[in-house]
């Protein structure tokens, strides 16, 4: 049996990715996570001195905290199995990546384990966030200097 024949058998038997179901679940749960976040923005605006411009930070921090707690309790992983991108894309997913790696590294101590493991998965997000911010700002500066666009 050659590779091509095998590929056929494998494709036939392997259950297909449930695209529609996955997308729907990601939409509903991802939307729900953002709606919960939105409730926190109202909470911080009404009860604290935050405006719509400044409320982003405390909201994100709160969501990160909740996700850290759920990660530690092992609940986040179970929700994520259903939600897929619905829990990976929100900032809670970033928190989950950092916290789960940190907990995992504990047996190697706080410096070699927790410290250096923490960004094992989230590190690429930080790299590409900072690098793309740099290049976008640079391109914008060049375009402004050339007079193509305004600030």
């Amino acid at each position: 049996m050659d590779q091509q024949q095998y590929q056929q058998i494998e494709d036939q038997i392997t259950p297909p990715t449930p695209y529609v179901k996955n997308v729907l679940k990601a939409f509903l749960i991802g939307g729900l996570v953002c709606t919960i976040g939105h409730a926190f923005t109202y909470f911080y605006i009404i009860f604290f001195n935050f405006t719509e411009t400044t409320v982003g930070n405390p909201t994100a921090a709160t969501m990160v905290f909740i996700a850290a707690l759920l990660t530690g309790l092992g609940i986040y992983r179970k929700i994520a199995q259903v939600a897929g991108a619905g829990t990976a894309v929100p900032v809670t997913g970033f928190s989950n990546a950092v916290v789960s790696a940190a907990i995992e590294g504990k047996t190697e101590g706080f410096v070699l384990g927790v410290g250096s493991n923490m960004f094992k998965m989230a590190g690429s997000v930080i790299l590409f966030g900072v690098a793309s911010a740099f290049f976008v700002a640079l391109i914008k500066l060049i375009l402004v200097t050339m007079g193509v666009v305004e600030w």
Partner: peptide, 22 residues
């Protein structure tokens, strides 16, 4: 530039490592 998400994740990640075990 700052992002509260990152700093919060670092702090809570550290605290979680103190408390939890996988």
């Amino acid at each position: 530039v700052t992002s509260s998400g990152i700093s919060a994740a670092i702090v809570f990640g550290f605290l979680a490592a103190l408390i939890f075990k996988p």
